[in-house]
Write a protein that binds this DNA or RNA. Structure first.
Lengths: 181, 181
DNA sequence: AACAACATGTAATAAGTTACATGATTGG
DNA sequence: CCAATCATGTAACTTATTACATGTTGTT
């Protein structure tokens, strides 16, 4: 998946929450989104430099009471705008939506609701497609050894999509409650 | 995730099922594992060449009754062995196991059972960890706007892991039935 | 004193996408 | 004959990992 420079937006997203150093970014990623995304120092530091050059964040040396000094990056208004533009773009990668929902507080609840609604629709279709595949595999289960394992993987997909549809419903409920408050 | 040359093993795995051309490999991937893995021609053709050079498959020109001629690759014994060795290695990437189960017919049911058992264990732990995070987020929900969205993503993880544990149970049952037949 | 954790960075390499180029064959 | 599909490939580029280098600070 080499295409959209996700690392840049993860960093910008975290900086939109609070000023951080490269080291701090790594810690944040590990503590919060490591279940579905990762980032290495080999990406963080060069990307931070680019972000600085593009005036999306400013670097400032910070000497904390404890520990060695660090380079703290603070997002600029330009950076914030570019990040929000990214959030609003329709995501290409299948699971980019998770990242965007993670940073959902930068958008309105309605924008997040719309994203999840679309995601849910896709999943309903994905699931229906896999249900057909499953049926075919059931019919031809004795045909060869492979089909049992193909069936297992298809069933994994169906169960995943099912749980994602259920999640969407819960998430939508929560966000709608929030809007009506 | 640039590390293990997954493309090579996807190709080898498909060739272990039947002889295929580069084009055919693409079609197979799209029809069977595109839910969780993809591959581009820019990878397929160079990788096929490498596979040929390493004597893991042999190329042969094939003129079908219909359509233009194609380069058909047939896996060698060496290729089959290298593929099985990869299958047996403990997977690094979180979802590599799906790929390996997909090709499960190349191993014994017991080996697949063991893989799934380990996967299930990991998921039980992952889920417990996220449950704690969820609790914390619930407590601090009013602290800031972000926490609602962090909670949503945490809940996505919990539900995913839950469905993966359920899938493991079903898969284990199916495979155990098979062994006892 | 030693070790773990904090902190920043680069170079080599690998993996993967995208865009492009080219041509054969089939069905309408 | 034209479009769609079949079919193979390369080059430029981007993204990402890994291994390495270096030094500070806090804890035992």
């Amino acid at each position: 998946m080499a295409r959209e420079n996700i690392a840049k937006y993860i960093i910008l997203g975290l900086l939109s929450i609070q000023p951080l150093s490269g080291y701090g970014i790594k810690k944040w990623v590990e503590a919060s989104i490591s279940n579905f995304w990762s980032i290495s120092y080999g990406q963080i530091y060069p990307t931070l430099r680019k972000i600085e050059v593009e005036d999306l964040a400013v670097k400032r040396e910070f000497k904390p009471d404890k520990g060695p000094k660090r380079n703290q990056y603070t997002i600029t208004e330009k950076g914030r705008q570019e990040f929000i533009k990214w959030l609003q773009r329709d995501e290409a990668g299948e699971y980019e939506i998770l990242l965007k929902i993670f940073f959902g507080a930068r958008l309105s609840p309605d924008e997040n609701i719309e994203k999840i609604r679309k995601f849910r629709e896709r999943r309903v279709q994905d699931r229906a497609r896999l249900e057909k595949t499953l049926e075919d595999l059931h019919k031809n289960l004795d045909e060869n050894e492979d089909n049992l394992y193909f069936l297992l993987i298809t069933s994994f997909g169906i169960m995943s999509y099912k749980s994602q549809i259920e999640w969407s419903d819960e998430a939508l409920k929560l966000l709608k409650d929030k809007t009506n408050q």
